[in-house]
Design a protein around this nucleic acid. Sequence first.
DNA 1: CGGTATCCTCTGAGATACTG
DNA 2: CAGTATCTCAGAGGATACCG
Lengths: 127, 127
Amino acid sequence: MYYINDKEYKCSVAVTLDIFNDRWKLAIIWHLLENEKRFKDLHENIAEITQKTLTIKLKELEEKNIINREVFPEVPPKVVYSLTPMGKKLKPVLKEMYYWGIKYVKEHGKVTDQSPCEAEACLKNGF
Amino acid sequence: MYYINDKEYKCSVAVTLDIFNDRWKLAIIWHLLENEKRFKDLHENIAEITQKTLTIKLKELEEKNIINREVFPEVPPKVVYSLTPMGKKLKPVLKEMYYWGIKYVKEHGKVTDQSPCEAEACLKNGF
DNA sequence: CGGTATCCTCTGAGATACTG
DNA sequence: CAGTATCTCAGAGGATACCG
């Protein structure tokens, strides 16, 4: 049995799934794997997410010790998000999701090789 | 660019995340990795899910060609769910989630080694 | 720039009862 | 046993406006 703050899990996959059971957190990690990013960069890269939701998800990830939040006392303000060691350990998970996604599209979709997203190029380069 | 039914994705991770963006689908896959299972077995193993939600999620997974649904014309009825080749290819993803979960609990939780869930034991045996 | 504060919508999911 | 059929609701997430 596994316990986190008195919450009980039957197996470790349940722990992982419980943390990333929403639409955005893993996408954020994916973009931060490439390198640390400012709030606005994340907002631009994850096009569909709203500012409010992004703020909430970043806070949740910070509370779970998966990302770091660094504030630069400048005007205009600058806030940089980066992965903690725990966050960086998610790389293999995302990497396998990346490979699976490619296989799935090859069987059930269509690929037009144009401009892959940064993180993708990153992975291809032996990230 | 990737397209699935005219829906556009910037990278393959987005494809994967879009399919598994709810609370249950990956948990279902996780249990089916061990071996094929009947509806009631899944219902018992994934304790918190309701019958209705399980039905919906199984249908979605079947539509996406990730699981097979086999009906045995018996009384009482028997329906067996199993992974398609595409579904089986999710094993590495879940495996990495499994490893990450363990690391996370070791840092932020507590482990009491009692009875790991079947699938977990399965993985430990070199699944 | 990097947020809050409101207000609002929609749907994932639960509870419960019923059926072939 | 393996589902449907309703009813219900919390809360995830969006839209918009404002702030230090």
